[in-house]
Amino acid sequence: MSEQSTRENSRRTVADDLRQRAIDAYDGARDGVSNAGRKAGDTLSEAPLLALAGGLAAGALIAALLPRSKGETELLRPAGKKLADTARTAVDAAREAGTSRLGELGLTRDAGVETLRSVLKGAGDAARTSADAALTKVRGSR
């Protein structure tokens, strides 16, 4: 066998090896995609709300990463401002109503501070009494 023939055989062997590796990689990728699709289908049937939440989260992430177009900004700015104003008004109304109702129930900040002081004082008294009882018991058992 000549040297040129040996080189050609070596090249064919390398080419065949590379071709087989490419086929194996393709088969592995195809199987992986198939398995991923099957798993996704199983997840959708087992937990559709979880899948929906995941889809919404992925969509929000993609939307956050994509730059906003000039047209979107012009179209959405008035709606965003109105939404923010409405939300601010709702928060203020809820805060005011909640504060008013707590005041009617006597649950003010001052009353809360006083209650906390009373609880802490009671806990301190209980701890002191327990410690005195334990000390008396230890001294009496000598």
Rank of each mutant, 00 (worst) to 15 (best):
V113G: 07
D85R: 13
K70I: 14
K137P: 00
T136E: 02
S130E: 00
V113K: 13
D92A: 04
R139N: 01
K121C: 03
S141P: 03
G80V: 10
S141N: 10
T129N: 04
A79K: 15
R101W: 02
L83C: 11
V138L: 13
A87G: 04
A94N: 09
D92R: 11
L102P: 00
R95I: 00
G140K: 15
G140R: 15
A90I: 14
R139Q: 00
S141I: 03
A93I: 04
G112R: 07
D85N: 14
L76E: 15
A90P: 02
A131P: 01
L116V: 12
G124Q: 08
T73Y: 01
E74I: 13
E74P: 02
K82F: 14
K137G: 00
S141F: 02
R109D: 14
A123D: 11
L116I: 09
G103C: 04
A131G: 06
E96I: 12
V119Q: 06
L116P: 01
R95Y: 06
S141D: 14
G140H: 15
D125S: 12
D110C: 03
T108Q: 02
R95M: 02
A127R: 05
L83W: 05
D132W: 10
R88L: 02
S69W: 03
A84R: 13
A84Q: 06
A123T: 12
A131K: 09
R68K: 07
T99K: 10
L107H: 11
A90C: 08
L75N: 08
G124Y: 04
R142C: 06
R77Q: 08
L76H: 09
T108W: 01
T73W: 00
K70C: 07
E114W: 03
E72G: 05
A111L: 04
S130D: 00
E72F: 10
K121D: 12
R88G: 11
L107I: 09
T129Y: 01
L120Q: 10
G80Q: 05
E96D: 07
L135D: 03
A79D: 00
K70N: 06
R139Y: 04
T129A: 13
R101F: 09
S141G: 08
V119N: 03
G112T: 04
L75Y: 11
A84F: 04
S69A: 08
A84Y: 03
T89K: 14
K82A: 15
R68F: 04
D110K: 12
V113S: 13
D92G: 01
K70F: 13
K81D: 01
L83F: 10
R117F: 05
G122N: 14
G98R: 15
E74C: 07
G103N: 12
A84D: 01
R101I: 08
S130G: 09
A126M: 10
P78W: 02
T115R: 13
E96K: 14
A123I: 15
A133P: 00
R117Q: 11
T89L: 09
G124A: 13
A90F: 15
T108D: 02
A94I: 07
E114G: 09
G140D: 05
V91G: 05
L83D: 09
L116A: 15
K137L: 04
P78A: 13
V138N: 04
G98F: 09
A87I: 15
G140C: 09
G124N: 08
A111P: 02
